[in-house]
Design a protein around this nucleic acid. Structure first.
Lengths: 112, 112
DNA sequence: GTGGGTGGTTACCCTGTGGTGAGCGAGCAG
DNA sequence: CTGCTCGCTCACCACAGGGTAACCACCCAC
C-alpha cells in the first residue's frame, strides 16, 4: 500500500530500511525528491515536467502522501490562477541526503 | 516489473537512484540483503526464517532476480538433502553499505 | 462567449506483484 | 514402505497501485 492508509500495516519493521522503503515506495517518489533537491520551491506543473511519465493524478497523490509523511511541505497561495509550491522539509532533505550513496551506487553500476 | 524481464524497460533513468530502486524494488529485497549482511553464507531455509512473512516462491524468485542483478551469489552443492548457499557479491556488499544511511534515517524516524 | 492556463478531483479499468497451496526428487531414519 | 527433510517449481488467484480520461472552479485575453 503506497497510496494512503498508513493505519493498516501491522507488519512491524525489521530494520530502519523498510521504514524508509515505505516512504519512498511509490513508483515516482525518489524522482520527485530528486526534482525537489536543487530548488527551494517547485510548482505542480514544474514537477510534472521534471518527472517525465508521471500522470497528474499520481503526482498529486504521491505529493499528498509525502506531505503526510512529513518530507514535503505544501504551500498554497490563494490566487488566480492557483499557485501551489512544494518544497522539502528538513526531514525530506535528510532523506534525500541519505539517498545519495544509493544514487552513486546506481550511477557506478549504470556506467558499468 | 520487478519480477524478471530486464529487457523491457525503455524508460531511461533520470538519475542513479532509480537504477538502484529497480534492483531493490521487490517487496522483500532489502530485508534479504539485511539478512545476508552479517553472515558470509546463508541457506534458503535460514533466509526464510530470517525474513518473516515471505513465502518460498517469492523468496526463490527474489533471490533469482538478485542473482541476475549480480548482487547475490548462489552456490548449490550436489548433496542430499540439497544444500544451497547464498552470499553477497562485492557489488551487493557495496549496495548494502549504500543502504546504511537510509536505514539510519528510518531508525531515527521510527524513534520519533 | 470561448479558449487557455492554473491545480487539482472523480470514476473507472488494467496490469503486475505477490500470496496460496500443491507437488516433486532423492536419499535416509525408523 | 512410510514419512521426513530441503529447495525448489507450477498453476492459479487476489488486490492495490498506477494509468486513462473527463470534469471542476476561477479569471483573463481575445
Amino acid at each position: 500500500m503506497t497510496t494512503l492508509n498508513r493505519p493498516g500495516k501491522p507488519d512491524g519493521h525489521v530494520c530502519g530500511i523498510d521504514t524508509a522503503m515505505e516512504v519512498i515506495g511509490g513508483k515516482w517518489k525518489v524522482l520527485i525528491l530528486w526534482a525537489l533537491h536543487d530548488q527551494p520551491h517547485r510548482r505542480f506543473g514544474e514537477l510534472r515536467r521534471l518527472v517525465p511519465g508521471v500522470t497528474e493524478k499520481v503526482l498529486a497523490s504521491h505529493l499528498r502522501e509525502m506531505e503526510e509523511d512529513g518530507i514535503v511541505r505544501r504551500v498554497s497561495y490563494d490566487e488566480v490562477p492557483p499557485r501551489v509550491e512544494y518544497s522539502l522539509t528538513e526531514d525530506g532533505t535528510r532523506l534525500n541526503k541519505a539517498l545519495e550513496p544509493l544514487g552513486e551506487w546506481g550511477r557506478e553500476r549504470a556506467a558499468g
